[in-house]
Computed example of a mutant assay.
Amino acid sequence: MFPTVRPQRVMYQDEARFGRISDTRYCWAEKPLHPEVKAMLIYQYTYAYAAVSPQDGRMDSLVLPEVSSKCMQIFLNEVAQRYPDENILMIMDGAGWHKSHHLQLPENLHLLFLPPYSPELNPQEHLWDELREKYFHNRAFDSLEALEDQLVVGLRALEEDHTRVKSIAGWEYIINSISTAN
């Protein structure tokens, strides 16, 4: 599969759309207070690309303007450059831009596709939930730039907290299968 023998890193990849549509949720308040939350509906979006390594809690991400094979190529190149001394097996869904014939895979990266319609098999999905819950609920943004700034803050926090990421994405069956494969 890989031309060079090196340590192998298994990563799960996904993209998520973040927009200026507010995500209102219930919150606690002392009686008789009734918190007011600003709500909006503006159709402006940006996209986060991320890949998580369940065995050690490492996560790598980029904020890009769209989902496309061009942006996917940028992300794959970035991840491959961050781990130049490792072979990366990146597991992802079968989105069209993931399977584009225009993608040129770095020599240390190989793709493996999940079965169709199975987001529950991808631990990166749970990191999107964590990001939305901790950094986006009950928030309204004055601009797309402000939303992207908050997205970067949340992504950086996850990238730096390997313990939290591993607790969310380090599913036992994945860790066991990686351990027995190496």
Results as ranks from 00 to 15, higher is better:
E78I: 10
V63A: 14
D60V: 14
E78N: 10
D93H: 05
W97A: 07
G94W: 04
P106Q: 03
G94K: 02
W97P: 06
L121Q: 11
Q150Y: 02
L131N: 05
L147Q: 02
V67S: 11
S61C: 14
S118D: 06
W97K: 00
L89F: 10
K134S: 12
C71W: 05
P54G: 13
A95R: 00
E148I: 05
Q124W: 04
A140M: 12
D149K: 11
L114T: 03
I91V: 09
L111S: 01
F141M: 04
P115T: 09
A95G: 12
P115G: 04
P123A: 07
G94M: 02
L112D: 10
A80C: 07
R82F: 07
E86G: 04
P123I: 01
I91K: 01
L76D: 13
F141D: 08
Q81P: 02
L76S: 15
M72H: 08
Q81W: 13
F75M: 07
D85I: 08
L111E: 07
H126C: 11
P123W: 01
Q104V: 06
S118R: 06
Q81Y: 12
L64P: 10
L144E: 09
H110R: 15
P84E: 08
Q81M: 15
P106T: 07
S53R: 15
P84A: 07
Q73L: 11
W128F: 10
F113M: 00
H101P: 12
M92N: 09
P84R: 05
D60R: 13
L103E: 07
H137G: 07
L147M: 05
D93P: 04
P84N: 08
W97S: 06
P106I: 05
E120V: 03
L112V: 13
F113H: 06
Q124A: 14
N108F: 04
L64I: 12
P84F: 06
L64M: 13
L105Q: 01
E66W: 11
N77G: 10
R58E: 15
R132G: 01
E78G: 01
E107I: 00
A80V: 00
L127S: 02
D149E: 15
E130D: 11
S68F: 05
R82V: 03
Y135S: 05
D129H: 09
Q124Y: 05
H102K: 10
P115I: 06
D93F: 06
K70S: 13
E78V: 12
R82C: 08
D60S: 09
F113K: 01
D93N: 06
N108Y: 05
S100L: 00
P119G: 09
P65Y: 15
S143I: 01
L76F: 03
R58S: 15
Q104I: 05
D129Y: 08
R82Y: 08
D60F: 13
A146S: 14
E125F: 04
R132V: 04
L131H: 00
I74P: 00
V67F: 10
A80N: 07
S61N: 12
W128C: 00
D149P: 07
R139M: 11
E78M: 10
Y83T: 09
E66R: 14
W97C: 08
L131A: 00
A95V: 00
L105R: 02
P106R: 00
P65I: 05
Q81S: 13
S69G: 10
L62V: 06
E133S: 12
V79D: 11
Y83W: 10
K70L: 14
P119L: 06
Q55I: 14
I88N: 03
L89P: 03
D93W: 04
M72R: 09
H98G: 01
